[in-house]
Design a protein around this nucleic acid. Structure first.
Lengths: 256, 256
DNA sequence: ACATGTGAATTGCTTCACAGCA
DNA sequence: TGCTGTGAAGCAATTCACATGT
């Protein structure tokens, strides 16, 4: 097992630490590697090179090797990585050796879809309970689970050993829900509501905001449009577009 | 230092010579600032300090000031930023002065929810068309739009001036859909399918993978659990965590 | 011969601390 | 007396290039 430096000061280790503390950027990519590895395994590959895995995961190979080196992982020089072994390693590090129970709060439009999303089940999670504040929704069956009232959260969280909370409520309700989750012992939250949550130290929040993703793309569209028309001010640069299609954006460029 | 603007020239959207090319990290935060600013405006604030806005957006104030400085933005020393002006600035930079038309491909579980998500409509986008490859779904009405067959994409994309494509199909279909979108002239794609897309240069892809978000949280849960053995100071609020999730092999002396 | 693992160089992002202005 | 805008310092992540091991 490889030995590597410990960035923090206080970690004194004589024995092998169970969990190296990985750079956040690496952690965010491990799930991607894991998915690619499962695909490779399904396709019958037993080993894969950094080049090959990097391609399948959409990153470059140097980055992949560095990421894996943080796990102290086992590759074989001249050969590559053992797919099955690497799957186990990554699943262990990500804490996926147990199937984590997830509570979903808010069964509106989006919550409904999330409750039925099989990607959760197939990748290490179990939606263990659904909650809503709206009494008229309580009791409704969604994907085989009955919607419960949010007040039952503390009891159910304990019973089901809830590990992660997902918030899919409207924004105004999200902060209160977050607090209820924290009070029920949940220390990891995935927030789909478009708002900032404030939570105590030690609680992790990740946010997914669908409109923000579109807005980021919008920026790039805007920029591409302004670059397509600006340079070489003589001729229209529309021909630069592959496929020869004129995007509607070109009309908005250059206000000068 | 690159682009500077004349501090005296007042302008409205459209008068800026070219788009400054912002750091990606900044671009990703602008939508967050924008949302916070809208909230502030609704609450009646006319100006806001970097501190105040940073708080509302969940970032620190130095970062916010640097981000805004990249836009060449107008704040007033000793006072703060004019909320309405800043909203205009950011909306312009993000290309939100026009309401962009979005095509959504795949009206399964998740696609259905996205089609009905009002966060898109309220934040600068218009879902202009729904597509699916499944003939039995074509014609179905969702949120006032009829589902069309994917083969109609080229025609509809042109008619509706589609700016952004959203892929909500199963993973195996996603690459083909991406190619169809690109062929139809779409240069920005938001991908919800758990797979890597390969697209030509000049096409932007952003990915949202719900299971990956949970897996990242899982990592942190795992790490927190492995540290639960030691700290004497502070928090005991999570003693409610049942199931004994502490990994056995983490006995490790850290500090004291 | 070939592909991993890793120091070193580089790039990009964040944070600090304060000059400059209202 | 504020609070913005920004050089400069500090960190983190990426990329390079090659020594290392099989």
């Amino acid at each position: 097992m490889s030995q590597h430096r410990h960035p923090g000061a206080s970690d004194r280790a004589g024995a092998v630490p169970a969990l190296p503390d990985l750079p956040e950027a690496t952690v965010a990519r491990l799930p991607e590697y894991l998915r690619a590895l499962h695909n490779l395994a399904d396709a019958g590959h037993e080993t894969v090179s950094s080049e090959g895995l990097a391609g399948a995961a959409g990153v470059n190979s140097a980055k992949l090797r560095k990421d894996l080196s943080h796990l102290g992982s086992y590759g074989t020089r001249g050969v590559g990585y053992d797919v099955a072994l690497l799957v186990d390693q990554i699943e262990f590090v990500l804490g996926l050796t147990q199937r984590r129970a997830v509570a979903l709060v808010g069964v509106g439009n989006l919550g409904h879809a999330l409750a039925g999303y099989d990607g959760f089940a197939s990748r290490g999670f179990r939606i263990a309970a659904l909650f809503d504040a709206d009494a008229s929704r309580v009791g409704e069956m969604i994907s085989g689970l009955a919607v419960r009232h949010i007040d039952e959260l503390p009891r159910v969280a304990a019973e089901e050993a809830i590990s992660i909370g997902v918030i899919a409520t409207p924004a105004p309700a999200a902060q209160a829900v977050a607090e209820q989750l924290v009070a029920a012992g949940v220390t990891s939250i995935l927030n789909f509501a478009p708002c900032v949550l404030s939570v105590p130290d030690g609680v992790d929040v990740r946010k997914v905001d669908l409109a923000i993703e579109l807005q980021i793309l919008s920026f790039h569209e805007h920029r591409k449009a302004s670059l397509t028309a600006l340079p070489a001010a003589g001729g229209s640069a529309l021909t630069a577009l592959p496929g020869g299609l004129v995007t509607p954006d070109t009309q908005e460029a250059i206000g000068t």
